[in-house]
Amino acid sequence: MEFLSPKNLNEALKFKSEHPDFTVLAGGTDACTLINSGILKSKGLINIYGIKEIAEIKENGDFLEIGALATLTQIIENRLVSKFLPVLAMACKTIGARQIQNRGTIGGNVMNASPAGDALPVFLAYETKMELLSAKGSRLVLFEKFYAGYRKTAAEADELAAKFIIKKCDDKERFAFMKVGTRRAQSISKVCACFRQSSSYKIAYGSVAPTPIRCYVTEKFLNGCKTDAFAADEAVRLVRQEVSPMDDIRSTANYRRHVAGVLLKRFLESV
């Protein structure tokens, strides 16, 4: 297996365009697992860990820009994130334990494209734009268009994730990240969710479909009525229809559907 370590972003993009079939290695917390077990059989690796140009977290007017190589710990401890997007830090705190958070990157969580990726519902609920870079240039993709199917992304073979552009949440906004996992730490989600209520409701889930999903039907219903206990019950009923979970070694479809409703109910009760 060939191993390429680009010195900077330009070199990384050049390598990726020359070797579109090589696997990109960021923190390696997912990729190395697959390499070690022999599941990932790539011709080569492009190690982009530590490329500073795409590891920064910064403000840009009404937006927060999070570099793809920002580690989960960086996000958890970042002042801007805690001020303008605290829910993302809440989600990152539930991914793996300290060792994984110190090494794993937010871009890796996205590009790994697991339907159980805990940060993904947050990006969906916040209508994130994602910048993809290649030697040819850059393009912006709406995060909700990024997942084409189970572990399939809209990224081209020569593209790298560069950053996530998210509108800062406003003062009056209510939000929550909720997760039901297999144990109390280092757990993989059975269901995770990000809920928002500002001018309108935004509802996003992980682990309940082949990709992370937004629940537009439920959102539309909630946006069109006064939220009282009756509306909450109806929203819970709708959201349980809207998710399409399955049985696997971590949980059952039946339980996941139930919990998806419970989490939404809890959010609606809190707002």
């Binding site: 697992t33 334990a97 297999t182 144990r183 109390r184 730490a185 280092q186 757990s187 993989i188 070694i249």
Partner: peptide
Amino acid sequence: VNNRFQTYIIPTAKD
């Protein structure tokens, strides 16, 4: 089918 520590889970300090 769960022959790994990611899938055969045992209690952590928080459990």
